[in-house]
Computed example of a mutant assay.
Amino acid sequence: MSEQFLHTPIDETTEHSYKAFGVIYKVRHRSAVKYWLWGIVVAVIIILFLPWTQNIRAKGNVTTLRQEQRPQELNTIIAGRIEKWYVREGDAVKKGDTLVKLGEVKVDYFDPKLLERTQQQITAKELSIDGYNSKASTAAAQIVALKEAMQLKLNQLDVKIRQQQLKVFSDSTDVIAVKNEFAVTQRQIDAAKVMFDAGAISLVDFERRKVSFQNAQAKLISAENKFLQSRQELITLRIEKNQTVQEYTDKINKADGERYSALSNAASTEADVSKLENVYANYDARNQLYYITAPQDGQVIKARKAGINEIVKEGDMIVEIVPKEYQLAV
């Protein structure tokens, strides 16, 4: 009987008759997964079409995103006197338009030809620099010429000294020869005197030998004087050489000093030129500051100073401009 029960098919009546059977086996149960998937897809599509920007209410100040788009105050860089207005409040201006012309109030800048006179001073200083440089070049050439002249003079003196040294040597040789001759005559006169006293020679022979002795003595004195004179001339030439060196050295040092003085004056004048050029640039920049111009396109909304001949100080506000293009932000 058991085997017959096992092989008997289960029909729908049996499925509906036993609730436990349906709970356990779930033969007729359907899955809900696909319904969840379709629901999620639909929800995502709906979310994609929802607006992302959310509006809220709050309190704040309206301003611009960039600083240069905010109202601009134009201030004076230099002190001055208002001479002319080129705009009025509410006028539209473009970048570079002249708004106000200022006049000078400082005594140092009253001269209308201040730039021209300063330029003349610069030109004169530059000419002075050329003159000093030319003087330095001339002094340098003079130094070269003096050195060459000194060398030639020293060469000439060296030749003279050499010649005089040879003359001194020659005179000294003559003195030695004359001394030898004098010694011979000295012996001869001594011998003649003995022989004359002995009566071996006559008076005439004795006198002749005496004359020869005196001539030899005079010749020795003359040779010694000539030798001493040659030595003195040699010393004089050496002194002259030293004097020549000293003289040309003084001239070279003087010319060198003049060259350095000229170069120093040129350098000092170049410094003066640089200062004058700086002053000229400051004057030129100050002249450009007399005209106050619009920094960008916009509209004049406020003029702090009014009228003509009104004195303004450095940093005073003249006008206020609202830029033409701007991006608002809260």
Rank of each mutant, 00 (worst) to 15 (best):
M1T: 06
E3Q: 10
F21C: 07
R30I: 15
A32S: 06
V33R: 10
K34R: 10
I40Y: 13
V41M: 14
V42D: 10
I46V: 13
I47R: 01
F49Q: 10
F49G: 06
L50A: 10
N55V: 06
N61L: 15
P71G: 15
P71S: 12
Q72C: 08
Q72N: 14
Q72Y: 15
N75F: 13
T76F: 11
I77N: 11
Y86G: 03
G96T: 11
T98H: 09
L99M: 04
V107N: 05
D111Y: 02
I122H: 00
L127I: 14
I129V: 09
I129Q: 03
D130Q: 03
S134N: 07
A145D: 10
Q151H: 15
L152I: 06
S172E: 06
D174F: 10
F182E: 08
V184E: 11
T185D: 13
R187G: 14
R187L: 12
I189D: 01
I189W: 05
D197H: 00
V211N: 15
F213V: 02
N215H: 06
S222V: 14
F227A: 11
L234A: 10
I239N: 14
Y248T: 00
Y248Q: 03
D250K: 03
K251Y: 13
I252G: 00
E258P: 03
E258C: 01
N265W: 03
E277K: 12
A281H: 09
A281K: 13
N282L: 11
D284G: 01
A285T: 07
T293S: 04
Q296F: 07
Q299I: 06
V300S: 11
K305I: 02
K324Q: 10
Q327E: 14
